[in-house]
Design a protein around this nucleic acid. Structure first.
Length: 657
DNA sequence: TGTTCGTCCATA
DNA sequence: ATGGACGAACAT
């Protein structure tokens, strides 16, 4: 038998191998096999059986071994991986490797139960040990001849392929977008979870597992569902994770996980909850994907319901709600409560410090012993490069940090990611002269507060210290006033009540958030309000009425307007975006590569979808970046043909362009 | 003409 | 991913 195998390597190529006599029945779609490629051992996945007649290759090697008893990703989950491979232009071998990564090593957790007389000598042995002693082939033969069963050590349940190929598919599943405040969401989830657990079904709760937010949620539900709650994060100890893996197969649990757990098996008739889908981070190791997209697709391929809960959902999910892919329920209560809103600006002479008017507000709050918050999108104090005419900051396209200037080389560069921007001597927006001004960040505000208001408690809240801050806030003396200063991490506060919330420079988010800028502004504001329900909201902007905050307070009108803007400029959700990055140390050779790629795109008649390239310097390298707008079906062949070119990176749905 | 270093290429 | 082929740049 000849099989096609996808190696778990970053290549779109697949390879043919011969299967040793007698092994045929041990192999199915996506069985992991050991192969040799360029004479070196590599793990691959069986894709299909090939017709031996049509094959003229003289040098087909045999596979070197079988790595699992049966395919660990099968049925609808296998379909999901195939879909993701295409949707994200990632070789199927890489997707499968990633999707399995959490539960790769099942054999040390399985015990053999003999079910026939001639396998009695294996009874009770650990599978990994038995394989070491008897060879894998022998054990496989017992398993496929029904001489043994495999029992995991946590549940006592028989370990079998989970795929239930094509019985009930997801067309009738529930996909619900639940728009509501934090407290409502928790109650709603709890009710859904309770019902499912009662029916011995699983719930998977996906959330951004960073900055201590995961622990916060875990504690809430752990109190309620006790030993029915399992942690499946990457930080969890290996045997704890394996315990969750096997218990999930049994059913009746609430499993907490981050983005990689969307591929967890055992979710049949279960529920996937995505809390704050707008904050779910994209995975970056090897296989880049957005877990919310995978969750949605999973509900189409498998018998699984999906609930997205948020106060400010991703705009593409809102759009899907309008199209009927999602049922949309709006249960917000708190937004009907009116906040007082005060809009002001910071005079240009007072930009590097807390302006007089901001200080007035703070002093009033201190006098009243209030707990108040200050939000600023910038973490650190620094000097920004600005344009003298339009006053826009010049920021790094890659990471959004403000640019620094190297006088000797006459080049702007980003300290954070090393990109140099050539020929930038005038403002890219309006052509004005560039000047330098200090800006306010969490650090500098904290410093100034500490020196201006000695004796007042000041807490800083950034990505790095959120966990500590949350703990400190719990211990804080209740009737004493305090000031919490924070960046984006301030949106992670869930049950803090603030009398006043001061936003400094909130309107400058667009400078580094690309086409999703307004959406991010909206989501930041809404999550801040949801987490801290302030009595008075202050907007201190760098220019008078730079933005009208009232446009960002009504969910429906904001999304309608933003969708119209996206539609007319052709941006997601009305098209998909892809970036192609070409990196090369020499400019001449790099340009050759760029031309090669452009001509490949032109050959397919797709040049209309192409924009760029934009040239950048990056740590001594030259880098070119293209953007392509269009659907995968149209673009897949081109992507496949350029994927294997060295130094070329394709990114699907790049977040800030 | 030999040596070293870095880029390209194919993997069954 | 990665080892070997290949070719440019350098030294002898």
């Amino acid at each position: 038998m000849i099989i096609r195998v996808a190696p778990s390597l970053p290549t779109m190529k697949t390879f043919l191998y011969r299967v040793p006599e007698g092994w045929e029945r041990f192999l199915g779609r996506f069985t992991r096999v050991k192969i040799h490629l360029s004479g070196r051992p590599v793990t691959g996945f069986v894709l299909s059986e090939e017709n031996e007649q049509g094959i003229h290759l003289k040098s087909i090697e045999e596979i070197k071994g079988i790595e699992d008893i049966f395919p660990l990703l099968d049925g609808p989950l296998g379909e999901l991986c195939l879909w993701a491979s295409k949707f994200y232009i990632t070789p199927i071998g890489m997707v499968l490797k990633f999707a399995l990564s959490y539960g790769l090593d099942v054999e040390p957790y399985l015990r053999i139960r003999s079910t026939s007389r001639d396998s009695l000598h294996l009874d009770g042995a650990l599978l990994s040990k038995a394989i070491k002693e008897n060879g894998r082939e022998g054990i496989l033969r017992y398993f496929y001849d029904r001489g043994i069963e495999l029992i995991d050590i946590f549940t006592g349940v028989s370990f079998l392929p989970s795929g239930t190929s094509s019985e009930k598919r997801g067309r009738n599943n529930k996909r619900l977008l639940y728009i509501s405040d934090f407290k409502e969401r928790i109650e709603f989830y709890a009710a859904e979870i309770e019902r499912r657990i009662g029916q011995n079904r699983n719930c998977l709760l996906l959330m951004p597992d960073y900055q201590g937010l995961g622990d916060f949620f875990y504690n809430i539900f752990q109190k309620r569902f006790k030993d029915r709650v399992l942690w499946f994060g990457s930080k969890v100890q290996k045997n704890k994770r394996m315990e969750a893996y096997f218990k999930a197969r049994k059913g009746g649990y609430l499993i907490f996980g981050n983005k990689s757990s969307v591929f967890l098996p055992g979710m049949k008739e279960g529920l996937i909850i995505v809390e704050r889908p707008e904050d779910i981070l994209k995975n970056i190791e090897g296989f880049r994907f957005d877990a919310t997209k995978i969750a949605i697709e999973r509900s189409f391929l498998e018998d699984v319901d999906v609930i997205f809960g948020s106060i400010s959902p991703p705009i593409d999910v809102f759009q899907e709600g309008k199209e009927g892919v999602f049922e949309m329920v709006d249960q917000r209560k708190a937004h009907k409560k009116k906040h007082e809103i005060i809009i002001d600006h910071i005079p240009s002479g007072q930009r590097g410090m807390l302006s007089k008017r901001i200080a007035d507000v703070i002093e009033e709050a201190i006098k009243q012993r209030e707990v108040i918050g200050i939000y600023t999108p910038k973490k650190i104090y620094g000097t920004s490069v600005r344009c003298i005419l339009c006053e826009e900051s010049i920021l790094c396209r890659g990471c959004g940090a403000s640019l620094s200037f190297n006088k000797e080389k006459n080049v702007f560069f980003c300290k954070a990611c090393g990109i140099e921007f050539e020929g930038l001597i005038k403002c890219p927006g309006c052509g004005g002269e560039l000047i330098y001004t200090p800006f306010l960040g969490v650090e500098s505000i904290e410093e100034q507060l500490n020196s201006m208001y000695k004796g007042t408690e000041v807490y800083s809240c950034t990505g790095e210290n959120l966990k500590k801050t949350l703990k400190a806030l719990q211990k804080k003396t209740p009737d004493k006033g305090a000031i919490i200063v924070g960046s984006q991490a301030l949106t992670k506060l869930c049950d803090v009540s603030l009398k006043r919330l001061i936003l400094i420079g909130w309107e400058s988010i667009p400078l580094f958030a690309g086409y999703r800028a307004y959406e991010r502004m909206f989501q930041t504001l809404q999550n801040l309000i949801d987490g801290t329900h302030p009595g008075i909201l202050y907007f201190f902007m760098e220019r008078e009425m730079a933005v009208d905050p009232f446009l960002y307070l009504d969910l429906h009108s904001f999304y309608e307007k933003e969708l119209m803007r996206r539609k007319s400029a052709l941006f997601p959700p009305y098209t998909r975006l892809f970036s192609i990055e070409i990196e090369h140390p020499s400019e001449r050779d790099g340009l050759k590569k760029v031309e090669r790629i452009v001509s490949l795109i032109k050959d397919k008649g797709l040049e209309d979808l192409l924009s760029g390239p934009v040239k950048e310097r990056y740590k001594g390298y030259y880098r070119w970046r293209f953007l392509l707008k269009g659907e995968v079906d149209k673009l897949y062949d081109v992507f496949k043909s350029i994927y294997d070119i060295k130094g070329v990176k394709i990114e699907a749905d790049p977040p800030h362009v």
